[in-house]
């Protein structure tokens, strides 16, 4: 049962990590244009870096 002491914090940490990632995507407006984003991966024009 000692492994619970390791496994539970790990599972909580991973869950928290997922939540932080989700909050980050939300704050960066990644859900504003789902249709457009789905189509943009098919486009031949991409940019290597964010626009100035």
């Amino acid at each position: 049962m000692e492994m619970l002491a390791i496994l539970i914090p790990i599972s909580l940490f991973l869950g928290g990590l997922g939540l932080v990632a989700f909050v980050w995507t939300l704050k960066h407006q990644q859900y504003d244009d789902p249709d457009g984003d789905a189509n943009r991966i098919l486009s031949d024009e991409w940019d290597d870096r964010p626009k100035p």
Partner: peptide
Amino acid sequence: ISDVERALAAMPGVNSARVNLTL
């Protein structure tokens, strides 16, 4: 998306054009 953005961006005076396909 790319047709519209390319055509508009090529116009002198236009800085950027971004299509929102959902809306």
